[in-house]
Design a protein around this nucleic acid. Structure first.
Lengths: 196, 196
DNA sequence: CACTTTAGAACGAACGCTCGTTCTAGTCAA
DNA sequence: TTGACTAGAACGAGCGTTCGTTCTAAAGTG
């Protein structure tokens, strides 16, 4: 039973979105009914349809909120670190952090098959945050930190290992806490693309 | 409209499974109705329920068929190649091949969120084929080809880049054919984990 | 051979239920 | 009083599944 997000300071709209995140990641979009959302959020059917066009509208709002939040964090990282090396390292650290402290957020971003219920959204990996990550890699190449290569391929190799570890963690098949693998994964990933 | 698998030599059971693969990857499990499967496979509702317990039973049979097929191919690779290096290289080549020639197969294996409609199946990455891939990595460490590391982390880094490229291809965001990235991805991936 | 019996494959209309959504009535703040 | 918000009963479409029936072909029998 979901209780964590029924904070009285939250607006009905926020309550619905937080509940949707909880339910969608736990049971999946199609196994979650509007009645489930009504019950767990303590917001009535009528109110939900006052704030959102339909069920898909709830999912879209949730998706956009998470993308925007992620983009904000990436922007901060870009300001804080100068080298592409440090930027990319910080990104993986961020992703690991979120996976541990808010697994639902990570699961919804990486793991949920959005196209099945959001036919109008572009796939996650062509969203702004993923583009930003590729831009970091491209900048690393321009600065001579990363070997000249196809940006798409280099990005896949640099972040692919970490993302794989994250989905393993979300599947619950890791023995140790995710952060215990951080240095190991980072050193592998960087070695994969580093110049010379 | 789906016509490719209505081969008259196929048994009704095979027709249903082939149609399910086609529809599930194209529209998703929950957006595919039993009527859709009936129509596209030209097998009647009654017959489908004669061969399969229920809709989930169709999905389970499909999933098991694909896992078994993948395992057979991995076994062949293990016999053909001696070094872990050659084995892993061949695995990535195989995955790229399947992605290009039978994208549905790859999409269903890697991309579809099985747990949403197969609550009794373990996640893909703890299935036998994925275990076999980790065993290859472990063997590479024992032989001194791959640096001593946590096997889980090394496997993620070695195959993560390729898998990321495959999902990019399935999302249709690659400019060139997937195979054009093969050597680049492999050299990055191997560098990530190779001994010294 | 011819006829009957039988097992189970194939069929698809019909059922019951759950879902997303709508609608009307009511509440509350300004 | 008005307009934004809340409430939850009611609706109709569409779903997975069932079930009574028909079809097919092999086995049994004389």
């Amino acid at each position: 039973m979901f209780t964590g997000y029924q904070d009285s300071v939250m607006s009905p709209r926020e309550k619905v979105i937080a509940t949707a995140l909880w339910l969608f990641t736990r049971k999946g979009y199609f196994n979650t009914s509007m009645r489930d959302i009504t019950r767990e959020s303590a917001v009535s059917t009528g109110s939900i349809y006052h704030y959102f066009k339909d069920k898909e509208g709830v999912a879209t709002a949730l998706f956009e909120a998470l993308l925007e939040r992620m983009q904000t964090e990436l922007d901060t990282i870009m300001q804080l670190h100068e080298s592409a090396h440090d930027q990319c390292r910080a990104v993986i650290s961020l992703l690991f952090d979120i996976t541990q402290s808010e697994p639902d957020v990570m699961a919804f971003m990486l793991y949920v098959k959005h196209r099945e219920f959001l036919p109008n959204e572009r796939p996650v990996c062509s969203s702004k945050p993923f583009e930003t990550m590729r831009a970091m890699v491209a900048r690393g190449m321009a600065r001579g930190e990363i070997e000249q290569r196809d940006v798409q391929a280099a990005s896949a190799c640099l972040f692919g290992g970490a993302i794989r570890m994250i989905t393993s963690e979300l599947d619950g098949i890791l023995e140790k806490p995710l952060h215990d693998y951080y240095e190991e994964v980072w050193s592998c990933s960087w070695r994969a693309v580093a110049a010379i």
